[in-house]
Nucleic acid binder design. Structure first.
Lengths: 341, 341
DNA sequence: CGCCGGAACTGAAACGTGTCAACCGTGCCC
DNA sequence: GGGCACGGTTGACACGTTTCAGTTCCGGCG
């Protein structure tokens, strides 16, 4: 129970402390016999290196941290997976923190990371705006990479997905299907992702079909149901024939409401969601959606981070933007009958 | 950029190192004027404490770690949330690690936690069997609490949910509805959770309706669809009138397959899932399910852990078992017509 | 006036490593 | 046989804290 230190190992093995240290860090530099003996003692005593002491000596940790905005959201767990893979291949450890959209908690986490002298930080900050604490990290030589927050700042790297393009992909798809009336369901527009998707959507449809904006207060299934109610209640002549949702949750709620009211999907209304979450494909009517390369996002972020860690001088800050991808499923499939004008 | 240490602060403030340390840790012990001066210098220099050095001195960290089996699974993110809340109120930090069902990665994480001299570890191990590495932690004075793994071991605490009772709840529900033929969908039975649910289910129905076991190779939506196919293909006289799924994902797949084949839910077949995941309520037909107190699980685990941390001597290892809860929704509602015999 | 006590502060030791210059011995080459 | 190179090992120092026994200073009391 009393933790055994390198000193004790050295004593029991009849060698100096330095030799034990060498066995662990530079095994080649020590004679095979001594090495064996030391390793035996280590095993016998159950000696475990003290990371605090190592870090103190080294001045730097060997782990990177990811501060996720909301680990309940599959988006971030996928990003995390990508980060873990990239870190693993680089021989670096990842520890995860969850801010849960709570600024206070985020701050506390960042303070701790600063005190821990972490290798680097991957973060999706709660506030899109400049956070002094992030600058503080950078000033202390801890690289920061923003995830899914396209801060145009040149002080750090960032990775993101092109949400404008995502909206555009949905728009192009619906335009090709020849929909006369379309709607965008989503909100609040104060969320950049939402407004970007909306912007891309409307821009790509300019001069085309009539666009209705159905604003929601959040991005939940319940909000989707409410939007569905609003849309279903419209007179048939005004009702959109296709809906693009800012989110798969909205789309699922919408789908559910439509189905329960006898509005057929995609027959009467086509639906396209966003995110391609696991349940999109498993919905009652499999959902078309815009897929984001989430794992890749995490991988790229980690690579940028490690690049900066390893070559702080040569490093040029970059902003990597990934392209989302349209996944067509049944909810927006062209309907075989010539019902559609 | 060059990190500034307490020494530099002391020099600039014209005091000794010890005084600066006191300002930080025992503010009352230092005169108000000096305190002010030191704090000013700290702010001016942007001094940040070196956690490695503190820990080295203290011999112990101030954070607990949670090693989750699969953060992609909402079950664990909810447990995590509970743990974070409990830790927060105790003034302790939580860092999350994800083993992703990978033994190698789990081992690596545990080694690191051991080296970090973490306060304690919350873990759902990949293998149900005794892992030497966990014992190693305990031997080094690091308490371990098992989450959702009811190891009867008396070497550590554990928290879990009574899966047998869960199966029983589903059974009682279906029995009350008077179903003549029921089925259990799930597998592999080598997973303790699955076999427990099955055991509770069959035990509670003993002497009652006929029970069919539809074994699946995993717990995914796809497996649920396959099971749905198998069930729908049965001759009407043999087809179960109610199905209990080991998992909501299975239930969703099953539901989807049934609906697409014109088998009405709950009219022709009632469905009860397990876990009450977010999408259970949002399914085309809202899904009845067995809910587990997931956040509470995390809170309890953390409390047990901290209790052991704070009073290692008085501490008695305990195994807390929570009761799951039946949530009835449309998928198993009694059908008003007297169609059912 | 001398002494005492307490508040405020100091200085050094210790925590467990990694590193690195110095040292030792052995075998080889000339 | 003497010097040299080199593999193997040692010992001391430094990393940045916290802690604690001392030291200093000062006001109050006998």
């Amino acid at each position: 129970m009393a933790t055994v230190s390198i000193k004790e190992v050295a004593r029991r093995a009849g060698v100096s402390i330095g030799t034990v240290s060498n066995v662990l860090n530079h095994p080649d530099a020590v004679a095979v016999a001594t090495r064996r003996r030391v390793l035996d003692v280590i095993a016998e005593l159950g000696y475990v290196r003290n990371d605090s002491a190592r870090q103190l000596r080294a001045g730097r940790s060997r782990t990177v941290a990811m501060v996720a905005l909301d680990l309940g959201n599959p988006f971030f767990t996928d990003v995390m997976r990508g980060a873990e893979i990239a870190a693993e291949t680089a021989g670096v450890n990842v520890m995860i923190f969850n801010s849960g959209e709570d600024v206070t908690r985020e701050r506390r986490h960042l303070d701790i990371l600063n005190e821990q002298r972490v290798l680097g930080v991957l973060i999706t900050p709660v506030n899109e705006t400049h956070d002094a604490r992030l600058d503080q990290l950078v000033e202390h030589g801890i690289p920061v990479v923003l995830v899914d927050r396209g801060s145009g700042s040149h002080h750090r790297c960032s990775v993101a997905v092109d949400d404008v393009l995502g909206g555009q992909l949905a728009a192009d798809h619906l335009r090709e299907l020849g929909h006369p009336r379309v709607a965008f369901v989503g909100g609040p527009l104060s969320i950049r992702q939402v407004s970007d998707r909306y912007a891309g959507f409307t821009a790509a449809l300019a001069g085309g079909p009539q666009i209705r904006l159905v604003a929601t207060t959040n991005l939940t299934v319940a909000a989707g149901r409410a939007a569905g109610q609003e849309i279903a209640d419209l007179p048939a002549a005004e009702r959109p024939t296709a809906v693009f949702c800012a989110n798969d949750l909205l789309a699922l709620g919408l789908l559910q409401e439509m189905t329960s009211r006898g509005v057929r999907v995609p027959h009467d209304v086509a639906i396209v969601g966003y995110d391609d979450i696991e349940f999109a494909a498993a919905a009652a009517v499999p959902l078309s959606s815009i897929r984001q390369p989430r794992e890749q996002l995490g991988r790229a972020a980690t690579q940028l981070l490690l690049e900066e860690v390893n070559e702080p001088d040569k490093h040029q800050h970059r902003h990597v933007v990934f392209r989302p991808e349209l996944v067509v499923r049944q909810s927006s499939e062209p309907v075989p009958t010539k019902r559609r004008k």
